[in-house]
Design a protein around this nucleic acid. Structure first.
Lengths: 206, 206
DNA sequence: CAAAACTAATCAATCGTTTGATTGGTTGAA
DNA sequence: TTCAACCAATCAAACGATTGATTAGTTTTG
């Protein structure tokens, strides 16, 4: 499929396989076969199977918080920040579902402490950022006083649910989230729904 | 911990271990040890490792839809049905987090087709029931016209998010979802938030 | 006694990892 | 320029450990 070096093709194959079969369900022999590389290349480049895993996750986690923090520090109202965050979060997760699946699974397993800790800290930072934006909006009188943590759970939970649930079940009878152009339609639908929902909930009714 | 027969203790141990370590991450030797049973007892009672798995899931799935359908056919308004569904769904998931973890993981893996199909059908039924309630409310003029599938994703996603995310991260700085009495507090908090949110969103503003 | 419940021992298969050898290309001194 | 030294990249083969499963035999129970 691609003419890149072995190292890259191992990473690409591993991410796909980990996503489809889980970490324990994926053997390094299968990774090697799918990446068209000798299985010893995995130890050679990444030290171990877990090394591949950590490499994939580290690459993805980097920059995940960056966008959030960038939005948080923009000179706009809390309401507009929330709209941007919903859009950014939705697009980022729906365009990297394989990674999101792996991350979510790892979060509920807590088998590999080094990775779990890394993921948790990243999520904690994200949480904090969104929390402060909402609190900022409440202080400014833009938002009603609500259960901030639960509002965040609704935002993250809704996006995660659309991303992780087989597309045949949830989004639409026709749309398939694995096809890029149809995924864009789903993204827009999720963004529109969440923006409407959250703003309506947070904004005091006049 | 319990003085039940081996069969039951195998099921109990397996559910806990599958939840914590995943299916592939749990060996039948470990199940046997934790259940204080010889590993061959697993084949003896359930035929295979997968047999244990299917048994656990089947037991739990049975009756999951029953409550939903019961609510759906009660002679109350669509609004009240939604309130009941949010409460029932939240309590059921938060009181069986181990099962929910397993189910969710299985849904994103699709490794065991027999099980995936069973889970998908159960979810599809649940979806349909809630969908009809919302549509019923819209027809009756109780609800605004909204994106029904997305509303359902928000309900299920929020509950799932609270259930699956390590409690240290999400619900509250002090509460731990694994302790029964504190779990009740979290349940009430989720129920209150979701009921407020969804009703405010669905009910036309006067 | 006969059926059910249980056990220890063992099976082939697969796991992640390591090894030693080989390749093709680059470097450095003569 | 030439040849030895060195390098990262790659490979097939094998390692010991663990996997799910099965056997044949023993204990318990009604």
């Amino acid at each position: 499929m691609e003419k890149q070096d072995k190292r890259s093709s191992i990473l690409a194959a591993a991410e796909r396989l980990f996503s489809e079969l889980g970490y324990e369900g994926t053997s390094i022999r299968l990774i090697g076969k799918e990446a068209d590389a000798n299985l010893s290349m995995i130890s050679y480049y990444f030290g171990s199977k877990e090394g591949v895993f950590l490499e994939i996750m580290s690459e993805r986690i980097k920059g995940f918080n960056a966008e959030l923090i960038r939005i948080a520090t923009e000179p706009v109202t809390a309401k507009e920040k929330m709209l941007l965050i919903i859009e950014g979060y939705t697009r980022r997760i729906l365009s990297g579902i394989a990674f999101h699946k792996i991350m979510h699974r790892e979060l509920t397993l807590e088998q590999r402490p080094e990775l779990s800790t890394k993921i948790k800290e990243a999520i904690k930072t994200n949480l904090r950022v969104i929390e402060e934006i909402i609190e900022e909006g409440i202080t400014a009188g833009e938002f009603r006083k609500t259960d901030t943590r639960m509002v965040i759970s609704t935002i993250m939970g809704t996006i995660s649910h659309v991303a992780l649930t087989p597309s045949k079940l949830i989004p639409c009878s026709v749309l398939d989230i694995s096809k890029p152009d149809e995924r864009e339609l789903i993204s827009q639908r999720v963004i529109k729904h969440l923006q409407e929902l959250i703003i309506m909930y947070l904004t005091p009714q006049q």
